[in-house]
């Protein structure tokens, strides 16, 4: 009897010990499977077998659905490949959001930094960590939203078109930012443009470049990035 208990303790110990993998590739077992695993379909549960079970489930809302409290959707559709009609048309659409207050602006800044700053830079200079002046992994230069002449003069609607449907190497952000959030971010960008108060404080070099008109000469064009990089390194 005594021997039996000793042996059983030993065996259990070996079993418990052998469950310790070097790299744990299995989640392990549970006491009460029916309490641990949901019978209801939870988020990220596999749903490819649902149709076989006779459950017809639509992952997308009905076309044209608008979330409660959300702004009306953008009236223009995405251009067909090779067409720019709607992109040009989008210049006529105004920002439906009124000017943001301090709290909303803070939130807009957060949204910008999370979603846009990675390429367009925290200073909006088109030099985010992914581009790093051409050193980063992203090989296309992101738009210089702070001082790029094209973007300073770009109407809100056209910016919204680009954020919603993507432009050039930029993808669509419609899945990451809601309609309201996209308009908020555009408010934020517009508030920083044209040598906004922060631009003056952060980077005087870029500010002076921004002050020059759009059709500035070659000398300015050549010197600007140098000034940008010094401002960033600081």
């Amino acid at each position: 009897m005594k021997k039996l208990s000793i042996v059983s303790v030993l065996v259990l110990a070996v079993v418990a010990w052998s469950c310790n993998e070097d790299v744990r590739r299995t989640p392990g077992h549970v006491y009460m499977p029916d309490m641990a695993y949901s019978r209801a379909i939870e988020t990220y549960a596999p749903i490819d077998t649902l149709a076989k079970q006779g459950i017809h489930y639509n992952r997308l809302p009905v076309a044209g659905t608008i979330k409660r409290g959300e702004l009306l959707p953008f009236p223009l559709a995405k251009d067909k490949t090779g067409d720019t009609a709607n992109y040009v048309q989008s210049t006529h659409i105004a920002n439906p959001l009124p000017a943001l207050d301090a709290v909303q602006m803070k939130e807009a800044e957060r949204l910008y930094l999370v979603n846009c700053g990675i390429c367009h830079g925290t200073a909006l200079d088109g030099n985010g960590p992914l581009y790093k002046g051409g050193e980063g992994p992203f090989s296309a230069a992101p738009a210089n939203l702070a001082t790029g002449p094209k973007y300073v003069t770009m109407p809100d609607g056209q910016m919204f078109y680009s954020v919603t449907y993507g432009k050039g190497q930029m993808g669509s952000y419609a899945s990451q930012l809601s309609t309201t959030q996209r308009w908020m971010v555009i408010h934020y960008i517009k508030s920083k443009q044209g040598g906004g108060k922060q631009a003056a404080a952060v980077a005087p070099a870029t500010d002076s470049a921004a002050a020059k008109p759009a059709a500035a000469g070659a000398a300015t064009a050549a010197k600007k990035p140098a000034a940008d990089t010094t401002a960033k390194k600081k």
């Binding site: 002046g133 296309a140 230069a141 992101p142 990035p225």
Partner: peptide, 12 residues
């Protein structure tokens, strides 16, 4: 500099 300002957003 000119390349990065004008061309790099579409060309590498």
């Amino acid at each position: 500099a000119i390349f990065q300002n004008n061309c790099a957003s579409c060309h590498s």
